[in-house]
């Protein structure tokens, strides 16, 4: 196998492959041969392995991680898979569980780690990864001085997809490392809110801020998002005020998004908010304050009252749909 690239896919806490699985396999296919290690409950492994193959994993190594130990079993399996596959690089989706596994894996392998990468390539000396730094103000490339690089891949950042592969699945037994782990006592899935796209990988995002004024009125943002087939996002002030879930926060300390369209409603555009959205292709902003800094990055800025503009926009979109 030329240039094996190991993707690490721990089953999501609620089941299924982790978010970003297609993306890391796509990235792997750009720099070598995609291989996957899938870790999860015994009865789910066959299905997960098949999915990984359909997303491009030419070989899938599966390992069982039943039980209630947090983080350590997935790291044990990933470390064993690295020994087996001898990859040029290890790519892990930058999900929450993925970041935990990556940190542990890098420590075990004594390998360097590139965090939150947005692109991969190859030069004469090996794998090079790209980071988007300071809210998209800089592009930085990094590489390992020698040996394999472990990288966490920002969700939604990779467009490449690998061709589906014929499943070639190998189950392997992992010797437990015996590292001390926290114990999981329970998991509560987040309530599924309709069929809206995932914020992190959506092509369009409609975000609402403190200007919405209440949780009830925040529904306006959701209606506009639905009219556009967009994901819903929020500013930190809107999250703090309880209008939206923390997982919807866009910005410096929330999610960084780079969609085709970002529509900001009642968001002033503080520097920390812009850090998470200013690389969007097209930005539209609606705010009643003409001096709001969001207008500095908007392709179309509309000064006015969101409570009249947004309903009119929704009707206009519905009318155009016919």
């Amino acid at each position: 196998m030329t240039h094996p690239i190991l993707t690490v896919l721990p089953a999501a806490p609620g089941g299924g492959l982790p978010a970003g699985a297609a993306e890391v396999l796509g990235a792997a296919s750009e720099i070598g041969t995609p291989v996957a290690v899938v870790v999860g409950p015994a009865d789910a492994l066959a299905g997960l392995a098949e999915q990984a193959a359909s997303l491009g994993a030419t070989t899938v190594h599966t390992a069982t991680a039943d039980g209630d130990q947090l983080g350590v079993p997935a790291a044990d399996a990933a470390a064993a898979a690295v020994a087996l596959v001898q990859p040029d690089a290890v790519l892990v989706p930058a999900t929450i569980e993925g970041r935990d596994v990556a940190g542990r894996l890098a420590a075990r392998l004594r390998a360097p780690l590139a965090a939150d990468i947005v692109g991969v390539s190859r030069d004469d000396e090996g794998v090079v990864v790209r980071h988007s730094v300071y809210g998209g103000a800089y592009d930085v490339d990094s590489a390992a001085t020698f040996g394999p690089l472990v990288a966490t891949v920002r969700l939604g950042a990779i467009d490449a997809r690998a061709e589906a592969a014929t499943p070639d699945v190998h189950e392997f037994a992992v010797e437990a490392s015996g590292r001390r782990a926290a114990v999981v006592e329970g998991f509560e899935p987040a309530p599924q809110t309709s069929s809206r796209p995932d914020l992190r990988s959506a092509k369009k995002v409609v975000s609402g801020g403190r200007g919405l004024g209440s949780k009830e009125q925040f529904a306006l943002v959701e209606q506009l998002a639905d009219a556009l087939g967009a994901a819903v996002g929020a500013s930190r002030a809107a999250v703090d005020a309880g209008y939206a879930e923390q997982s919807l926060q866009v910005g410096q300390t929330g999610t960084s998004v780079s969609p085709e369209l970002y529509l900001a409603v009642g968001i002033s555009g503080a520097i920390q908010h812009r850090a998470g959205m200013q690389t969007a292709k097209t930005i539209i902003a609606i705010d009643k304050d003409a001096s709001a800094p969001i207008f500095e990055v908007a392709d179309l800025g509309v000064v006015g009252d969101l409570f009249t503009i947004v309903p009119q926009l929704i009707s206009a979109l519905e009318a155009r749909k016919g």
Partner: peptide, 26 residues
């Protein structure tokens, strides 16, 4: 083994676009 930076580039800042004030048809 360590992770090292191999290149750094600054992205051009975003230019502001068109700003309009709502006149009832925004």
């Amino acid at each position: 083994p360590r992770s090292i930076m191999t290149a750094v580039a600054e992205r051009p800042p975003r230019a502001a676009g068109e700003i309009i004030t709502d006149e009832g048809d925004a």
